[in-house]
């Protein structure tokens, strides 16, 4: 019991420091500003723009097309979440790039490694810190969407919205976890960001490769695709296998990070 308390206290210490480092960093505010600007632009464009969903629905109404009926609210959530995930593809590697690379560069890894902390507690605390920062980026967007949905007639259910965001957070956790592992391999934050971006892009589109392959390999590749598993959530469908895939990525990232830090200490000269 007491050891659990200690582990939790350690976790919170790492988590709070990590989160604080984001909020103390002007760089993180630049990221947040860019993210909010772009997602705000897409929000307006998808919903209200000349090619937007409302304009399309009006056009259909004028043509008298009522069959099949379109659910503007659900479509909007799905489209917008798709856009957010694409933005996240660029934002998340930048958020994860410094998690360990900075510690290695500053020498603070030596402090963490000689403190009574286990590697995976440090990794988990860092991951949660980065994830929390990403969630704060999403919060204003969530408010916009809630306002938009509450104006819908007939009233739109919020479950789709919440599931979609759950999916987005899971996706972010998976990407950050892998990005953290990449970050633990190098002293260079830029290199970490580029490698993470490449890795995530590959996992993003791997279902395209899967589509062109037949047999179990193709099917397997489709299952590990990030975008494919995310799309389920974004469309308001809760798929437990997608949940498992995302959580597996998170665990894999944590495990590899802990191993890589251990290996780093064992081999360094």
């Amino acid at each position: 019991m007491q050891s659990v308390q200690i582990l939790f206290a350690n976790l919170m210490a790492i988590y709070r420091r990590e989160l604080q480092s984001y909020f103390a960093s002007p760089f993180a505010y630049v990221i947040a500003g860019v993210f909010w600007l772009l997602s705000g632009f897409f929000f307006v464009a998808i919903l209200l723009g000349p090619e937007g969903l409302i304009a399309q629905a009006n056009f259909r109404d004028q043509l008298g097309m009522t069959n099949p009926p379109i659910d503007v609210a659900a479509q909007f959530v799905s489209f917008f979440l798709g856009t957010l995930s694409s933005l996240a593809l660029f934002i998340l590697p930048v958020l994860s790039m410094g998690l360990y690379a900075e510690e290695r560069k500053r020498g603070t890894l030596e402090l963490l490694a000689t403190s009574p902390l286990t590697n995976w507690i440090v990794a988990l605390g860092k991951l949660l810190g980065a994830l929390t920062f990403f969630v704060t980026l999403l919060l204003p967007m969530l408010i916009y969407q809630t306002i938009a949905l509450s104006a819908a007639n007939p009233p739109a259910p919020f479950t789709g919205l919440l599931l979609g965001h759950l999916g987005l957070i899971l996706l972010a956790a998976a990407v950050l976890s892998l990005g953290m592992f990449v970050s633990s391999l190098t002293d260079s934050t830029i290199l970490a960001a580029i490698l993470t971006f490449a890795l995530v892009l590959f996992l993003w589109v791997v279902d395209l490769v899967g589509n062109s392959l037949v047999g179990p390999v193709g099917a397997g590749l489709k299952h590990i695709s990030l975008i494919r598993n995310y799309t389920n959530f974004a469309q308001g469908v809760f798929d437990s296998s997608s949940l498992v895939v995302f959580l597996s990525y998170v665990m894999l990232g944590l495990f590899l990070t802990a191993q890589s830090i251990e290996a780093f200490r064992f081999q360094r000269s």
């Binding site: 420091r17 604080q20 480092s21 103390a24 960093s25 500053r106 020498g107 603070t108 890894l109 030596e110 402090l111 000689t114």
Partner: peptide
Amino acid sequence: IGYLPETPPLYPDM
């Protein structure tokens, strides 16, 4: 143990 490595392990933003 308390340990001071060659380069002090400090977080500049704290």
